[in-house]
Design a protein around this nucleic acid. Structure first.
Length: 552
RNA sequence: GCGCCUGUAGCUCAGAUGGAUAGAGCAACGGACUUCUAAUCCGUAGGUCGCAGGUUCGAAUCCUGCCAGGCGUACCA
């Protein structure tokens, strides 16, 4: 619809120029938007205003000339007028909108999709929590955001793969092993002081007990270093299984689980060092090995191998991201907690060192989640091991509510998550508000079927001529734009907001208009309309990973 | 100190590429169920878009300075 109008305006510009009515050629693409105020028409364009300086003419005059040269063979424009400082407002013929409805019905679950991605291969990596403890709500937000972005990008024609990076080598895993081992020793009365830097949660005790149940005291017979390694290995595996289960409960699935350790096992990290040396991207200083990130705009170079011989995480991260490109992806998206933002510059520098462009690497920063109950903060101390896990929250409020709330806010803005509000089935909690639309329509459709009313092959849709009808149809017309924009900007919350808006329009409509009436033509038209709304709601919710229930 | 992010109604937040009278929800107040689900709807009220300058036809949006909050600034992960 917008496109049609754009074409009409462009050809009018061209025609006016060729006829000499306008002094300059102007191939600027006109901005067409839906005005905030309904009286300003269905669409408005600022083309006359932005052309003013080029044409050296007042906007109003340009607008008049343009309108004189408009060709509208399909008759979609009902009237067009000039308003304000030079806007051209277009009022469309109601009939023109019906094509949107037909589109929705024809495309069904593909309505809103597009192919801006052209099958470009994108890898999105998210969650990637260390397997040293259960997932908490913050991880949940990352999971919801990552998963939804993946869905949206796929819908827009990208070839997307989702990956979880497992930090299964390095110090934290050692600490995990030590923690479990010490708790294990306690079980045999060999208590030592439990260090503060070990993991404090009860799950460590449980892992120790599981270890004990396996073969009783066998670990005590080993050298403590070996015992710690054994504990580290089995505990990490166990925790990772738990993480996988939690994510399944959240309906987030990954295409691949990528192990950091495997980068060492396959010598990818070593190769990266060789490569960096050879390219002179790495050098020795003060007993450590440094990577020249400053060369690509980082504020200083970064250590990749410490003087004690241990690699930093940055070393394996370079190898990892290099490997992603080598696997054929042309664009990488990483979803990180906002506390990692200091890491972006150096990682981007690494990306450029591969000869890739900066825009082939996007970081989506996800801000903190403040967990509340009835407005009061819930104590969340990872140190003390007191935290509400993602699993707890899913069990309490459900996956759908959880995901929707996580996606309601811009990912870069902190989020208050109130457990009590999340359970409420009121407008406080927009999940139900949106889902209710779907359920209500299902209910109408069911009733219509019982009464043998059909919503296809209506003789005419001209019964849908009230402002209420058109408002709904117009908002449906916006859906593809919303989806595309949220794909371009990696912002799922736009879809959530859109859905709330459509839901609001529908509930309003529902309260004012009966769908099933004695008038069969009217019933047919309204059913057709309402079923289109249902398709949109379902498509939108699907992009957020939320169910669209038949009844509630 | 330096860097990044944030500051919009009492609260929680939307407002892409500058556009017309800045929008939702919640909370407050007043209304609507003989109906396809009231998990809904309608109405009222609520604003110096942190502050001050600048850019221009036009700024919540762009630029500069300041104020407030968060985060980062490791041979931590």
């Amino acid at each position: 619809m917008k496109k049609q109008l754009e074409a009409i305006i462009l050809s009018a510009l061209d025609k006016a120029y060729k006829k000499g009515a306008l002094p300059s050629q102007n191939n600027q693409t006109p901005l067409i938007e839906v005005p905030r105020q309904e009286s300003h028409g269905d669409f408005s364009s600022n083309i006359a205003m932005v052309s003013a300086s080029i044409q050296k003419m007042p906007p109003a005059k340009i607008a008049t000339i343009l309108l004189d040269h408009i060709d509208d063979p399909e008759g979609i424009i009902d009237k067009a007028d000039i308003a304000g400082p030079g806007f051209i407002n277009f009022h469309l013929n109601p009939e023109a909108w019906f094509s949107i409805l037909k589109n929705v019905h024809e495309q069904k679950d593909r309505y809103g999709s597009c192919n801006i991605g052209q099958q470009e291969r994108i890898m999105i990596e998210f969650v990637s929590a260390n397997p040293t403890g259960p997932l908490h709500v913050g991880h949940g937000r990352g999971a919801a955001v990552g998963d939804s972005i993946a869905k949206i990008l796929s819908f827009c024609g990208y070839d997307v793969k989702k990956e979880y990076y497992i930090n299964d080598s390095g110090r934290q895993i050692q600490t995990l092993g030590r923690s479990v081992y010490l708790r294990y020793c306690e079980l045999f009365g060999k208590a030592e002081a439990y260090p503060e830097d070990c993991y404090q949660g009860d799950y460590i005790r449980e892992l120790a007990i599981q270890e004990k149940n396996k073969k009783n005291s066998y670990l005590l017979d080993m050298k403590s270093d070996d015992a710690v390694s054994t504990c580290a290995h089995t505990a990490a595996k166990k925790i990772l299984e738990g993480i996988r289960d939690d994510l399944n409960a959240f309906r987030v699935e990954f295409d691949t689980w990528f192990s950091e350790q495997s980068l060492y096992d396959t010598n990818k990290v070593q190769e990266t060092f060789h490569w960096a040396r050879k390219k002179d991207f790495a050098y020795d200083k003060e007993g450590a090995i440094w990577f020249r990130t400053e060369k690509w705009g980082d504020e200083k170079d970064r250590v990749i191998c410490k003087k004690n011989g241990q690699n930093t995480y940055f070393a394996s991260d370079i190898a990892y991201h290099k490997d992603k490109f080598e696997r054929g992806f042309t664009r990488l998206i990483d979803v990180w907690g906002a506390d990692h933002h200091g890491y972006i510059e150096r990682m981007s520098a690494a990306i450029e060192s591969f000869g890739k462009k900066r825009n082939q690497f996007n970081v989506v920063l996800v801000q903190l989640v403040n967990l509340l109950r009835d407005g009061e903060p819930v104590a969340m101390s990872t140190r003390a091991g007191e935290f509400v896990t993602l699993k707890d929250v899913i069990d309490e409020v459900g996956s759908d509510a959880c995901r929707f709330i996580f996606l309601m806010r811009h990912h870069d803005s902190p989020l208050d998550f109130d457990l009590e509000v999340a359970k409420k089935q009121t407008n406080d909690n927009p999940v139900f508000y949106v889902q209710y639309v779907h359920a209500r329509i299902s209910s109408i459709v069911k009733k219509a079927q019982q009464e043998n009313s059909v919503a296809t092959d209506c003789d005419t849709l001209s019964v849908l001529n009230t402002p209420d009808d058109l408002r709904l149809i117009k908002s449906m017309a916006e859906f593809p734009d919303i989806v595309r924009l949220s794909a371009e900007r990696l912002e799922p919350h736009r879809v959530a907001y859109y859905l709330m808006n459509v839901a609001s329009l529908f509930h309003n409509y529902y309260n004012k208009n009966r769908v099933i009436t004695d008038d069969s033509a009217l019933t047919c038209g309204r059913l057709y309309l309402v079923k289109a709304v249902q398709i949109i709601i379902k498509n939108g919710l699907t992009l957020l990973g939320v169910h669209a229930p038949e009844s509630m």
